[in-house]
């Protein structure tokens, strides 16, 4: 089984370090982008298996970046989990509207992040397994 690659779009150094550490601990390859523009570029170039998208990021925010990725053929299949510090009820609706596959409100325990990543990937695998190689 090949190593899954996670693209972490996060401008906060601490958060990036924490999620990278736990994800690597659980065997994922982790790429980090520190703003929306960079996130979109890296998603196109590296084709990660999943994107963890912080919402409050410079240049292009998480909502906008997700919309762009989901509207492009080469990146629309990549699951996106939104990470938001707002914890508002409306955020979940907004995440869905933007095309996010999952939603986590910060602060979130690192293990909870890993759980959500695993869940999204297994759903994505199940969807992909039905398609011819």
């Amino acid at each position: 089984m090949s190593t899954n690659t996670i693209l972490l779009v996060e401008d906060n150094v601490d958060n990036a370090a924490i999620y990278r550490t736990i994800l690597e601990h659980f065997g994922y390859a982790v790429l980090v982008a520190t703003d929306g523009e960079m996130g979109i570029t890296m998603a196109r170039q590296q084709s990660p298996d999943l994107i963890l998208m912080d919402i409050s990021i410079p240049k292009i925010d998480g909502w906008e970046a997700t919309k762009i990725l989901k509207s492009s053929e080469e990146t629309s299949h990549i699951p996106v989990i939104a990470l938001t510090a707002h914890a508002l009820a409306t955020d979940r609706a907004r995440a869905e509207a933007a095309g996010c596959d999952g939603y986590l409100a910060k602060p979130v325990e690192p293990r909870r992040v890993v759980e959500e990543v695993e869940r999204q990937l297994s759903e994505s695998d199940a969807g992909a397994s039905g398609e011819p190689d």
Partner: peptide, 23 residues
């Protein structure tokens, strides 16, 4: 509250990593 959550996230996150003895 929002501004509090970002550093809180770091504190809880690092603590969790340490408690999980990952490092």
């Amino acid at each position: 509250s929002h501004e509090f959550r970002t550093p809180m996230n770091a504190i809880i996150g690092y603590t969790d990593l340490l408690v999980a003895e990952i490092t």
